[in-house]
């Protein structure tokens, strides 16, 4: 399939290869949570709720001088418009929780580590999935954390990129995502100019990984 028209250079939805979808963010959408955000990338819609910093509930998990970040990710049953899909036991969830948990540790400022309030809970729920849910979750979580007033060293932002029809494409939607091409998600600390996440999903020779990174950097910078 021609994911990028060779005649007009447009993708199916009218974007150029290096263009993102429309993004929209809103904070404070949930009154009960300490911080919350609703984030949209095109038709992908994610809600994030942050509780904390609070006391560590399970004392055995407490580690001195370190904060505990718990992240729970789930996809709403209706998010894909396909009811048959069961979110439980999805491979993504496990890897997501692990990812998110470890990722944020280094991002937070150590300023609150002196107090006893050391647990932060992040809940992410995908309301509508149209590709790039991982990136949308990270962006939503960042907004919610900022809303909760948790001190952070930098803002984490994320976007995905792929490679189809010999063209690097930024911010894949569902149709492009399921085309079977390689796909890389990157999380960046913008001010610190550092990368916190680099995840590639593809069947490809090892060095192709580098091509992906390069194409991403080209698109993003």
């Amino acid at each position: 399939m021609e994911y990028v028209s060779s005649l007009t250079g447009f993708r199916f939805d009218g974007r150029r290869p290096n263009e993102m979808r429309q993004i929209r963010g809103e904070i404070g959408v949930l009154a009960k949570a300490d911080g919350s955000a609703l984030f949209e990338m095109g038709n992908t819609k994610v809600i994030a709720a942050v509780f904390g910093p609070r006391e560590v509930q399970n004392k055995s998990q407490q580690i001195d001088n370190q904060a505990l970040v718990r992240c729970e990710y789930s996809m709403a049953n209706f998010s894909t418009g396909d009811r048959a899909r069961k979110p439980k036991g999805d491979r993504n969830i496990i890897s997501y929780s692990a990812d998110h948990g470890s990722k944020y540790i280094n991002t937070f400022d150590a300023s609150f580590s002196g107090k006893n309030l050391k647990q932060i809970d992040i809940f992410l729920q995908v309301l509508q999935a149209d590709g790039g849910t991982r990136s949308a979750c990270i962006n939503a979580a960042t907004l919610a954390l900022a809303d909760a007033g948790i001190p952070m060293r930098d803002i984490v932002t994320s976007c995905s990129a792929g490679y189809l029809c010999s063209t690097p494409l930024l911010d894949l939607n569902y149709v492009e995502d399921s085309a079977g091409g390689p796909d890389v998600t990157v999380g960046l600390l913008v001010k610190m100019d550092k990368m916190t996440l680099l995840q590639v999903i593809a069947l490809m020779p090892t060095f192709f990984f580098f091509c992906c990174c390069i194409c991403f950097v080209l698109l993003f910078v």
């Binding site: 009218g14 979808r21 418009g81």
Partner: peptide
Amino acid sequence: VVKVVREHYLR
């Protein structure tokens, strides 16, 4: 039968 929703950007 499924419902498909796609974005369509106008430039």
